[in-house]
Design a protein around this nucleic acid. Structure first.
Lengths: 150, 150
DNA sequence: AGGCGAAGTTCCGTAAGGGAACCCCAGGTG
DNA sequence: CACCTGGGGTTCCCTTACGGAACTTCGCCT
């Protein structure tokens, strides 16, 4: 599709989309996150075409968010999140929060998240890394940063 | 492409992707967020094809994250975030945080965010809505929720 | 020796993206 | 009044990517 590459833009959103923006990628990461680590498990869970799953897994491994770990003498692999990938899950959790809030409807959220640290079922709450207060769309100003020239 | 619809899955990530998962959609929302609200502004900024921009804007309006606001006697429109859309920006901010951390490289982040409440340049920090401690991928257990049956 | 199972790979038909040209229409200009 | 202009799309064609199913590979198991 000669799909435009976003990575060249001086924008961290665009660059992030170059890593996980293709169709299925976030769902593949979700599966790996919750413990589905093998090709056929993920394929069966998502109903994704095997060809596309191969492409996505390769890309995610290349980008360093997944690692391929052999689990047999034969060439059999499990996929696991790297540190870079574990950090990505925060994006998924914020997506969950939004979907739970705006799309779950009467039935309520399909999955609940219990926070180890406090033992409570909770959602993720984006806060300012400096003052700890909630940080929302209309609560920030944008300034050019050091990497703005390119 | 008879592309698979994710929305039927009992998963808030999949449902969220049905709203903003198509190529370009997050970047369109970013543009609207930072104040580019007219068709030609967005088209020029992103270099997106006019056809796809039309489709994406229609979809985002249908999904209730953008609203079309006339600004002239002629049929001229500005696009603005609804409350549902303002809430979505938190997803973008977490993407920015990840991109800044893992993809910005030597040059540093292209854009800085100053938090109104405290006046400091800061990033968004995902915390537990219950106890306020950081909430990371390996710090949560998943439980079936009320909307799990479908 | 034959079968199996995981992980890909190949092939084809269809649908989505890219790009450029075209259309519509209300105001402004001469 | 005729014409131009500029925003916001729409249409057309071409290329590419997805979906689905069949096929391949290669060790292990019996």
């Amino acid at each position: 599709m000669q799909r435009t590459q976003f990575g060249e833009m001086a924008c961290s959103i665009a660059r992030t989309l170059d890593v996980i923006g293709e169709p299925w990628s976030p769902l593949i990461l979700r599966d790996v996150w919750v413990g589905l680590s093998r090709f056929d498990q993920i394929q069966a869970d998502l109903g994704i075409s095997r060809k596309v799953l191969t492409e996505r897994l390769n890309h995610l491994v290349e980008q360093g968010v997944l690692e391929r770990r052999p689990y047999d003498a034969r060439p059999r692999f499990e996929y696991h999140l790297t540190d870079k990938g574990i950090d990505l899950v925060e994006i998924l959790m914020v997506m969950v929060r939004w979907g739970d809030r705006w799309l779950a409807g009467e039935a309520g959220p399909p999955v609940l998240y219990r926070h180890h640290a406090c033992g409570q079922v909770a959602a993720v709450d984006p806060r300012c890394s400096h003052c700890g207060e909630p940080m929302h769309a209309d609560g920030v100003d944008l300034l050019p940063g050091p990497g703005s020239a390119r």
